[in-house]
Every structure is written in structure tokens, then in C-alpha cells.
Design a binder for these strands. Structure first.
Lengths: 190, 190
DNA sequence: TTCACTTTTTACCATTTGGTAAATCCTTTT
DNA sequence: AAAAGGATTTACCAAATGGTAAAAAGTGAA
């Protein structure tokens, strides 16, 4: 049930069986359907999520009222609104399922309890978090100054596993173009 | 000489005098002129920089051969190519002075020595780094799906201190547009 | 100052992208 | 199967942006 989490964590370091049991007693599993909202904009992020299966999207609403997708997260990635989670401020972004997904939920207070019991666990998550932030920046930087066609082609290569599972509307929003433009781009480049 | 660094660090926590002395013995000051390259793409990032005065830019070369500016860094910010610095891999980006600047240089090996002497120092820098990464992502996300005029207006508001000191060519590169387009945008919105 | 060099502005046209609207395709529910 | 609703595609035109080139303005050095 929680295997995906430990399989992933043990890519970095071995976790003793009794620590795994301690962790298991402080997390829960959850299945969500496409479109379901895991964190609503304006609320506090009190949960850290780990994706066992599926794709989540981080979404905000632009000045013009459009939905803007900041990034997608898929299997073996942790997900929260880090600023809200760490600073206890209201989130300006939402977390939503981009397709049917299975996730593990760490409640913030229970996570901190785990940090006290297992000090190395905090370090591990901190390192994973730093790495994840770096990767998100790298992806976004690769789009600067590129036209929409190039951005789409890069997205298909860099995030092919996600491209196949989310709607075109979502991909267009992520790439910063309209869904009509994306449809046109796909047509022109077969 | 190193006051800007300690003034900044002590916004987060008090640093004992003798620790300051230890730090001072492991860093150096450097003045650089606009255009000077602090890290060349293809090399290893072996230094962590702290900006006392001026603006640095993180630059890569796109497939088309254009210079692309990922972000600007100014006073009271640390600067390195984090991936290269932490993983000892060659950097795909360069660090360059966007205007005349004064910086403090931490050599990687001496920084690690400091971490051993002052364990809290590593935590402090880690937290500052995480925060900085978050801020960079937030800035970039605010541009997704916005047209060039809106991106420019946001840039002026969000990074006014930088906007006044770097060339228009650099601003255009940062915003992902040509310098001609930026010139036109400025003309149309007085 | 004058000259050489770089940066910024302007102009022109080709291309890309946005916005609106309607048609088509797909999926789910009845 | 039929109906309903959402997603995707297509079409059309307006607006934004890119690319090339040249003029103008600014900067620094001799």
C-alpha cells in the first residue's frame, strides 16, 4: 500500500524496518479523481502529498481570470504549496488532480512528529525538496524565449509521461498558450 | 569590507564574533565590471558568491544561439549554479556581471570546512537557498500566459531595483522577447 | 572635441498567436 | 442506442511579435 513511497525513498538511503513502521502509522492513502481539488487557493497547505500514481497540477488564476498551470507532478514526486506549508500563509495556488491519481498524505503536525523521532528523515525530505525545486526551475528556464511550437516539442520530450495523460487544455495552460493554438501546432507538425 | 554579508545573515540569526572571524578568514572580496564572466558555461561551479553591490545574471545559450537570461541577482543574494556546485557537474549556464559589482567569494572547499566548524552555518545557508529557489520559481510563474507588455510591467514592479541598472537587451532576454519588441512596448505605454 | 563603438529606437513586412464562434469528436449517463 | 456535456479541431480575422535593416542616441577612449 505504501510501497511506492519506500521504494522511492530507498533510492537515496536505506530505511530500517522499524522506521518504516513509524512512518506508516503517520500517513494515509487517498484515491482522487480527475478534477478533484486537493488544496483550494486561499487555504493553508497543511498536507505534504506523495504521488503513487497519476498526475497533479499546480494551478493559479491569472489577472484575466484564466487558469494558469505552474507545473505538473507525477509518480514519485512530493507535492505541496511549499510557501504556504512552511510559512503557514494562505496559498495563492491550488492543487488539483490532472487525472485519476493515488496519493499518500502526510499531515503537517504528524510529519513534524516524525522529524523529531527520525531526524534523518527531515534531511532526506529537505534534500529531495531542494532537488525538486531545481528541476522545476530548469524546466521553466528551458522555455524562455522559445516560441509555442518549440515549447510544445520540448514538453513532449521532457515530460512525455505526463503529456499522454493530461488534457490538451491543461498542456496549453502549462505552455502559456490557448488550446486553439496548441491544436493548430499539433496539426502543423506531423 | 564584509559587513553586507553579516548584516544580511544576521537578519536570520545572531552570529558570534568569533564565528564571524572564522568566516572572514575563508572568504575574499572581488570587484567585477559589467560584462565580466564569473563562471563560464562548461566549467565546474566551485564558488559560492554573495553580492554586496551590483547585479549578476545567469545566462545560457539557446538552440538558436541567442543569449537567454534565466534570472538576475542583486544585493544580498547568494549566487552560484547550484546543480554544478552541489553535484560537481559541468554547468550549462554562465554567471556574468550585468553591471559593475562587488561580490564576496566562498571557495567550495573552504565553505565545507566552515560547515564542519560551524554546523549551524550550513543550515542557515540551506534555508536561504531554499527560499531563494522558491522566489525564483514564483517570479517565473507570474509570467506564464502573459503577453510581453504584461511581463514587462510586472518586471518593472517586481524587480524595479534591477530594471534601472541593466541594459534593455538584458531585460528583453530575461522576458523572452527581442530588444526591438521591448523598445516598442516602452514606446506604446508612457 | 572627435571618433569609434555600442545601445536603443524606428520602420517595414512576414509570421505567430489570440479571440470568437461554430463544427466535430469523445465520453458518460440515461 | 440516444442524448447530453465536455474536449478538440477548424476557420476567420485582429493583434502581437519576430526578423532585417537602418537611423538615432548614448558612451567611452584617444
Amino acid at each position: 500500500m505504501f510501497e511506492p513511497l519506500f521504494n522511492y525513498l530507498e533510492l537515496f538511503q536505506k530505511i530500517p524496518l522499524q522506521d518504516k513502521e513509524a512512518i506508516c502509522q503517520n500517513i494515509e492513502c487517498k484515491k482522487v479523481k480527475e478534477g478533484e481539488i486537493l488544496l483550494q487557493e486561499g487555504k493553508l497547505a497543511k498536507e505534504l502529498l506523495f504521488i503513487c500514481k497519476g498526475v497533479l497540477k499546480i494551478v493559479s488564476i491569472s489577472d484575466k481570470g484564466n487558469e494558469v498551470i505552474h507545473f505538473f507532478l507525477s509518480e514519485n514526486q512530493f507535492c505541496t504549496i511549499l510557501k504556504s506549508f512552511t510559512e503557514s500563509t494562505v496559498s495563492t495556488d491550488s492543487i488539483q488532480a490532472a487525472c485519476d491519481s493515488e496519493i499518500i498524505v502526510f499531515q503537517k503536525d504528524r510529519l513534524h512528529a516524525l522529524y523529531n523521532t527520525l531526524p534523518y528523515f527531515k534531511n532526506l525530505l529537505d534534500n529531495i525538496t531542494k532537488q525538486a525545486l531545481l528541476n522545476k526551475i530548469t524546466l521553466r528556464n528551458s522555455y524562455i524565449g522559445e516560441d509555442a511550437t518549440t515549447r510544445y516539442q520540448k514538453f513532449i520530450v521532457q515530460q512525455s509521461n505526463i503529456a499522454l495523460r493530461v488534457s490538451q487544455t491543461d498542456i496549453a495552460s502549462y505552455l502559456g498558450i490557448t488550446k486553439q493554438s496548441l491544436s493548430r501546432i499539433k496539426k502543423n507538425k506531423p
